[in-house]
C-alpha cells in the first residue's frame, strides 16, 4: 500500500500520521487518510475538494498532474509526500 508522508508544518494544528493507506489514486489514498483524521481534509483540500493552491503533493518525487480531482494513479510501493508549496519564498 502507498505511504503518505505529511509535512511537519501541520503538526502545530493537528496530529499527523505517516501511514500506509489503500487506494489506487492520490484521491483514494487521501480519502483513506481522512477517514482516520477527518480534520486533515480542510488543511489539504479546498471547499470543492481540489488541492489547496499552496499545498503540493508529490508521488515518488513528481508533482501530481491533476490538482482538481487528484486522479493521479498510485502503486502499492509508491510514496506520496505532502508539502507546503513554496509560493512567494
Amino acid at each position: 500500500m502507498p505511504v503518505v508522508a505529511l509535512t511537519a508544518a501541520l503538526r502545530r494544528f493537528l496530529p499527523i500520521p505517516s501511514v500506509r493507506v489503500g487506494g489506487a489514486t492520490v484521491a483514494a489514498a487521501l480519502d483513506a487518510l481522512f477517514a482516520d483524521s477527518p480534520g486533515l481534509r480542510g488543511y489539504l483540500l479546498d471547499d470543492q475538494g481540489a488541492l489547496r493552491r499552496h499545498v503540493a503533493i508529490y508521488v515518488n518525487g513528481a508533482p501530481v498532474a491533476d490538482r482538481a480531482l487528484l486522479s493521479d494513479p498510485v502503486q502499492p510501493a509508491d510514496e506520496i509526500h505532502v508539502f507546503q508549496a513554496l509560493t512567494g519564498g
Binding site: 508544518a9 501541520l10 494544528f13 480542510g42 488543511y43 489539504l44 489547496r52 499552496h54 499545498v55 507546503q84
Partner: peptide
C-alpha cells in the same frame, strides 16, 4: 488565515 492550509 493560514497561508498554505486555508482559513480556520
Amino acid at each position: 488565515d493560514l497561508g498554505h492550509f486555508g482559513a480556520k
